[in-house]
Design a protein around this nucleic acid. Structure first.
Length: 513
RNA sequence: GCUGGGUUCGUAUAACGGUUAGUACUCAAGAUUCUCAAUCUUGCAAUGGGAGUUCGAUUCUCCCACCCAGUACCA
């Protein structure tokens, strides 16, 4: 029995574009799992596809994680935001970018060849494409396996001398895994339980390619997880079909004893209709699918939660609850509470449809938990954009009174602009409803009373005379707000002051009569 | 097509053989307030279908249907 290993999990994104919310959730679950167990959360960049590399994607991923408060222990230096390239006590497995580890993989691939678990394949891309279309025309799918490899050009079918020649020649070749025949691979997934697959349905995956001297995902992933002493692999469900290959790879290397445990997370699905959440859904349906704004090479910008006004705590909270539940009825969790409560047993098996309404609800909840002071700090730049200069203490007071009415700080201006500038227009429907002589004549009398003795005195006056409270107050409200909505008249007057109150009453009189 | 995974109110989920199938979001109604929002109350609404196992199935087994993923010298 080996002694209990320190928990080490990794998030291994590929820098082929911005990380979307599903990716962030995968990172989050890894992070929660590690922190719950007092272990390490490692970032590794899987950039073994030289064709699909997207500039800026790596920095985006790191920035997104930082915004969410998902801080890696290893792999990225968070002070600089850079992927670590030099070994140190903190980062003993550097470099953490697979393209910078390229020298190490070939030997592992060749180890498999000499052990009989892999072979050299000399088929060109064209030959394979031809084989695929040929199979397709017969209504079949070409798979590179124990049957078909016998008829293809590789180190299993060609004489040794020719193999030697081809290996040293100018044409490209690959190392492929030699998938065993007729074996049942029995696997165990932390979320899905026991899964079995017959190897006859699997193909001989490419492990290493001569063309760019780089491993493919499968090889690099297994080798690095082993080298980095990863104990649990928590990744998206799309990897489940590759699990048998990965099990076999651990076996082929003789690393079964330290093979990590696997957990395949359910996918995030689009809110309506079928299919997984894709980057186009968001802008079409009015919600972000990315944590941060992303501008692609064509200049199109995709919305991010951050720029759309979500608090990172709310974003993390809503993501955590998409596919996981605490087993209690608690819904609001800080990161600290999530770490405490998280367990892989409570991760669900089925895909989760994302619900934008619930996302907004989370933000609303976090908004009202913020202090008036903090909200004021966030609101002040918005005010400045509207050309408003307001006293800080005043803004703090306003925030305290309006925060329960908003979902985002960005709503504040629409909700409360009348507390900073007088209305310039009056809502037509509300005018039609309330602005009648029998109402506004009384309203002006009450307004005079309010001006001299305060709102309470004005209300007294209405009650004593048994005037219609609602109609009169709404006429006054129309003058102050420009519509029949908003804070109580007493609050408004106490905020804007009696002089401004009088000016607004005078203005509506001029405008509407 | 093949292989694998999945299936509880519209959505996220709870109930891991015994509940009037719970909670939250959304929606609707009512209460409240000078209005709106907020708040409170109430309501609408689910075990995909069929066989079994069992005294008893949301829960276990099988079949079907549907959904998803994979099926690249991409991850």
């Amino acid at each position: 029995m080996s002694t209990e290993r320190r928990t080490r999990v990794r998030f291994a994104p590929s820098p082929t574009g911005p990380l979307h919310m599903g990716g962030v959730r995968t990172a989050l679950y890894n992070y929660l799992y590690a922190k719950k167990r007092g272990g390490d959360f490692i970032i590794r960049i899987e950039d073994t596809d030289s064709q699909r590399f997207v500039p800026g994607a790596e920095a985006y991923i790191i920035e997104a994680l930082r915004w969410c408060g998902i801080i890696p222990d290893e792999g990225v230096d968070m002070a600089t935001g850079a992927v670590v390239e030099e070994k140190s006590d903190r980062h003993p497995h550097a470099p953490y970018r697979q393209s910078q580890r390229r020298g190490l993989y070939r030997a592992y691939a060749e180890q498999l060849v000499s052990a009989g678990w892999a072979y050299y394949a000399f088929d060109t891309a064209e030959e394979l494409a031809a084989a695929r279309t040929a199979a397709e025309t017969q209504g079949q799918t070409f798979i590179y396996n124990a049957v078909t490899r016998k008829g293809l050009r590789n180190s299993l079918t060609l004489p040794a001398s020719e193999v030697e020649e081809l290996l040293n020649g100018r044409t490209d070749w690959t190392i492929r895994f030699k998938m065993p025949e007729g074996r049942i691979v029995a696997m165990d997934d932390m979320i899905r339980g026991h899964v079995e697959v017959n190897t006859d349905t699997l193909d001989d995956k490419v492990l290493w390619k001569r063309a760019d001297e780089l491993p493919t995902y499968h090889l690099a992933n297994i080798v690095d997880d082993h080298l980095m002493e990863i104990t649990e692999v928590i990744r998206g469900e799309e990897w489940l079909p590759s699990l048998p290959l990965h099990y076999l790879l651990y076996e082929a290397f003789g690393w079964q004893d330290t093979m990590p445990r696997f957990a395949h997370l359910p996918l995030l699905l689009k809110p309506v209709g079928n299919g997984k959440l894709s980057k186009r859904d968001g802008d079409k349906m009015g919600f972000p699918v990315f944590p941060l704004n992303w501008k692609n090479s064509e200049g199109e910008t995709y919305h991010g939660y951050r720029e759309d006004g979500y608090f990172p705590e709310a974003f993390v909270n809503l993501l955590a609850m998409l596919g996981w539940n605490p087993g209690t009825e608690q819904e609001i969790f800080s990161m600290k509470q999530l770490i405490e409560a998280f367990s892989i047993e409570h991760v669900s098996k089925s895909g989760a449809k994302f619900n934008p309404d619930k996302a907004k609800w989370y933000n609303k909840e976090y908004l009202r938990m913020k202090s008036d002071e903090e909200l004021a700090t966030l609101f002040e730049p918005v005010l400045a954009d509207h050309g408003v200069k307001a006293d800080h203490a005043y803004v703090v007071r306003v925030c305290g009174l309006i925060k329960e009415r908003a979902t985002f700080v960005a709503d504040f201006w629409n909700i409360a602009s009348y507390l900073f500038v007088a209305p310039e227009t009056y809502n037509e429907k509300d005018v039609a409803k309330f602005w009648h002589p029998e109402n506004y004549e009384l309203a002006f009398k009450v307004a005079d009373k309010i001006y001299s003795d305060g709102v309470e005195a004005g209300e007294e006056m209405i009650k004593e005379n048994e005037w219609p409270m609602g109609k009169i107050m709404n006429c006054i409200r129309l003058a102050l707000v420009g519509a029949s909505s908003g804070l109580g008249i007493a609050d408004i007057v106490s905020l804007i002051g009696r002089e401004e109150f009088a000016r607004r009453m005078a203005r509506i009189k001029e405008t509407l009569q």
